[in-house]
């Protein structure tokens, strides 16, 4: 499924931008931006607007 590109949801991309010391190996471990909390956050925000 498509991921959602958002400054407020792509946790790893935003985190790594502030932490240049992270390696490619770290990225492989941490790269999934869709942990359960982000899905819950998405559901909460959308539910307020439906």
């Amino acid at each position: 499924m498509e991921t959602i590109k958002s400054e407020y949801l792509d946790y790893f991309e935003n985190y790594v931008a502030r932490h240049p010391e992270l390696t490619a190996e770290d990225a492989a471990i941490m790269a999934d931006p869709w942990d359960v909390n982000e899905d819950m956050l998405l559901g909460y925000v959308l539910s307020l607007l439906i």
């Binding site: 959602i4 407020y8 925000v45």
Partner: peptide
């Protein structure tokens, strides 16, 4: 450009 950010920053 960034729908989720706009929902949070502007609409909510």
């Amino acid at each position: 450009k960034d729908p989720f950010k706009t929902l949070v920053d502007k609409v909510l």
